[in-house]
Structures are given as structure tokens and as C-alpha cells.
Amino acid sequence: MALLVLTSIILVTLDLQGSAATKSMRSIFGAVFRPVESVARVVTRPATNAWYGITHYNDVTVENELLREKIAQQEGAAVAAAASVRLSQELLALNGLPTLAGINSVSAQVIGDSPSNFSQSVEIDQGTESGIKVGMPVLNAAGLVGRITQVFANRAVVMLITDPQYALSVKIINAPKTTVTTAPNEDPASAVTIVSVPDSIDPQITVPTVPATSNIAGFTPGSIVAPRTPIISSSLTIPPGSNVSVRETGILEGRGVGRVPTVRFIDATQRFGVVQPGSPIVTAGGSLSLAPPDIVVGTVSRVKERLGTAGPILEIDIVADLSNLSFVRILLYQPITERTAP
């Protein structure tokens, strides 16, 4: 028993010190084990599929219907969003600021989950041969998924953002307060009804008598609320001109299986006041960050207030569905903290 403990402690120590011996041991074992795992996967696939068929059929049917509905709703918004992103990138490029579009990426397929009840990681089929290095951020079509923690020749391990070891600086973007202004359509000479106006705005505002529209299908500036009575008036939501979205930096921390990640603020006194559920959360970037700025992470789902000056803790809904990862994209972006001297 003493020998067992001693051997294990030596192995743990060597591995934590980053010993080349333990790395090559893992690598060799991986090369030996890979064919066995492939055979096992092929042999057990019918059983796995049967299991998923039995346990997830109803969920998949319901989810499919919801997704179809959601896709229909979001088609117009996606076109508008794409136009906005392109415009944003052009503006950033014009001002010489870094953008995600300027970072090369590699696509990879998820080939396995972590065989453990206590860690949150997946394995992908790309490695050093594709230029992947430890620390690189991993995302899917929805948003941030995790980061590379181990890399081999043709595979790599991705630590998911729900892993308790995962931490990342993020920005919380509080939506600006909105103003609802009602203007009658048919009689331009009639009075303009202002429902609420922030103090900073001059009450002598001019409201167009026709509804504000865009030349992009399905996209409207702000949101237009449909009138309850037919064509009597239209309500436009106008962001106050003096208030752009306010950002605050925090630390995102994974909390393990079945628990949503949280964000706590670096500064206990936030500049932008009360955080609203639904506020988007994006990566903060910076020279020491593990990810470039402005990758979508999720939205605030719940704000947990704490006593004293500790500030609130935000629970977040991750936009990426980590339970159904198939393909991911690795940004070939390496933070300074992970770079090694040549």
C-alpha cells in the first residue's frame, strides 16, 4: 500500500511539474489505445443509438419543433445581425482595431467526451499538426465552448467553460434604457405623446410620422411594437442618444456538471447600476486573457445579490449547447500567458 501511494504521488508530482516523461507516456498510450477505442466505438454504436432512441426520442421531437419555429423567427434577425457584424468589422478595421475576423481558425470534430463524472472536457480530432496549441479558445456556431488544455499530434482535449477549473475575464453589457414614444400616423399635426424620456434627453424631440424601417428584410432599428388598434399610432423604441451600452468586467467561473457558470465582478461597485437578466456576456479580451475580445458567451439568467460590498453574482445561460457538441472551431489565437519561448 505504501508503495502504491508513493508511486501515485511521484506520478502526480511529475505530471504537475510538466514532466516530459508523463507527457510521452500519455502520448504513447494514446497511440496504442486509439485503435481499441475506435473498434469499441464501432461495436457499441448500435447499443448507444438504441439508448439515445429510447431515452431522447420525445425530447428530440419536441426540440425539433421548437427549433423549426425558432429558425423561422430568427432568419430575418440573422440577416440583420450579419449586416451589423460586417459593418462593425469594417469600422474596427478602419480604426486599426483587432477583430475576430482577423484570427485564423481550424474546424474540428468532437470525437469523445470526458469519461469521468467530475470533469468537463471533450476530445477533438485536430492537434498540433493543424497548428493548435494549449490555451486556444474553442467555439461553435453559437459561441464560446472552452479552451484547449492538452494537445497531441492529431487530437486535443478541450476544457469546457462549465469545468470548475475554467475561468475567464468577460464583459457584461447592460442594455441601455429605452424610451417608448408614441406618435399618431394619420395626423402629423397632432400632439406627440412621449411615454418616458430620460433626463438627459431634450423633450423637444422630433418623431417621424412614418414608422422607422430598414432596407434589410426582417430588420428594424430598435424594436417596433405592433399597435393593438389598427393603424392609429405606432410605438417606436428609441435608445437614448446619450446612453450607449455600458460594459463591466467580471470573471466567469465554471461550476461543474449540472451547474450553470457564474460571473463575479472584479470591481464590487458597478458603473452601470443594476444588472438586468438577459444582458449579453462576451469575452473581455486583453493581453492576459485566454480569448480574444467579443466572443459571445451567454446571457445573464439570474442575479444573486450578496450582502455587504461583495457585489452580486450573475448566473449565466451559455449560448453554446455543450451537451450536443459535434463540430467546433478553434481560433488560432494564443494568449501571452500560454506562449512559450521558441
Binding site: I9, L11, V12, D15, G30, S119
Partner: peptide
């Protein structure tokens, strides 16, 4: 251990 992302030996 060789297939986990935890330290080898744990």
C-alpha cells in the same frame, strides 16, 4: 489516467 485530463497518478 492516460485518457483523463486530470494529473497522472490520481
Amino acid at each position: 489516467d492516460c485518457v483523463l485530463s486530470m494529473p497522472l497518478g490520481l
